[in-house]
């Protein structure tokens, strides 16, 4: 069953989807197996021999009404610091491969900078790393987070590749539509490539400390701060990870208040550039 909260991409709709998701999990509604939020919807998987279609609808309507206004929603959230090698050689190779084999296109970071009215690719890096990114959803690929900037001044929009790219280096940081995503696997893709993180955001073996309890680093409602690094530092972190010495940096959970966020957004000076 899918619940739609609205018909556009406003971030408030995602706060509602996550609010309802947490209510469902807290209430432990009998028969619900899984809840997968997206930007403006929530997909609910249920066992029909435990709860009927109609009863589920009634139950979800009741919970939705108890959610109140979007301002009142508070969401469990933690901050993850992810090193990101912006303008890296690996995603550059994937773009060049596309230019040779499929069709010529502008270098992705220059393209995204240009259509968002930024000076150049370096300002793109400052803008993209100048905000916390809200994890709205984890979907499509294992551990693949879909994110939106919490500082509206850092919102980047860009059309996706057409036709899609043949391959993407794993852990590429990319933007498309209004989202930032980390492509966890080497797969075809349509998002514009702007960097690569050395840190895995999911681990099937579940050996490293952050993955022992849950298989992915990021969950809907978490926030990500990208820390710009260069290619040398990228390689150093990869080595540390191999030795099992890398320490993942995440904060404890706090309550993210939509009300407080909205109040903060009102104070922002939109003339200020990064």
């Amino acid at each position: 069953m899918m619940i739609e909260f609205g018909n556009d991409g406003a971030i408030e709709l995602n706060f509602m989807a996550l609010g309802l998701m947490h209510l469902i999990r807290d209430q432990k509604v009998h028969g619900i197996i899984d809840t997968t939020p997206s930007y403006n919807s929530l997909l609910v998987e249920y066992e029909p021999s435990d709860i009927s279609d109609n009863d589920l609808k009634k139950e979800l309507q009741k919970l939705f009404l108890s959610l109140g206004s979007v301002e009142e929603i508070e969401i469990e959230s933690r901050l993850a610091y992810l090193p990101c090698c912006y303008l890296d050689p690996w995603t550059k190779a994937a773009i060049e491969d596309y230019c040779q084999k499929v069709k010529k296109r502008e270098f992705d970071p220059d393209f995204v900078a240009r259509i968002n009215g930024l000076e150049d690719r370096h300002q793109l890096v400052r803008v993209h790393s100048g905000t916390e990114h809200w994890v709205a959803s984890v979907m499509a690929l294992p551990g693949c987070a879909l994110m939106r900037p919490l500082d509206p001044r850092c919102l980047l929009t860009s059309p996706k590749y057409n036709p899609p790219r043949l391959w993407t280096p794993e852990n590429a940081v990319c933007t498309g539509g209004m989202s930032t995503s980390i492509h966890t696997l080497r797969v075809p893709g349509g998002y514009n490539l702007i960097g690569r993180t050395p840190v895995p955001v999911y681990e099937a073996s579940q050996n490293s400390p952050p993955f022992k309890k849950q298989v992915t680093l990021l969950q809907p409602g978490d926030r990500v701060k990208f820390i710009p690094i260069d290619a040398h530092e990228y390689k150093y972190i990869r080595q540390e990870l191999k030795k099992g010495k890398y320490s993942f940096r995440t904060t404890d959970y706090i309550k993210f208040s939509v009300h407080a966020w909205k109040a903060w957004v009102k104070t922002l000076n939109y003339q200020e550039r990064f």
Binding site: M2, D8, G9, P37, S41, L43, M139
Partner: peptide, 13 residues
Amino acid sequence: EHGSHPSNCVDIG
């Protein structure tokens, strides 16, 4: 934000 083709939508599960 849904995208340009009629079959495009804001990401869903």
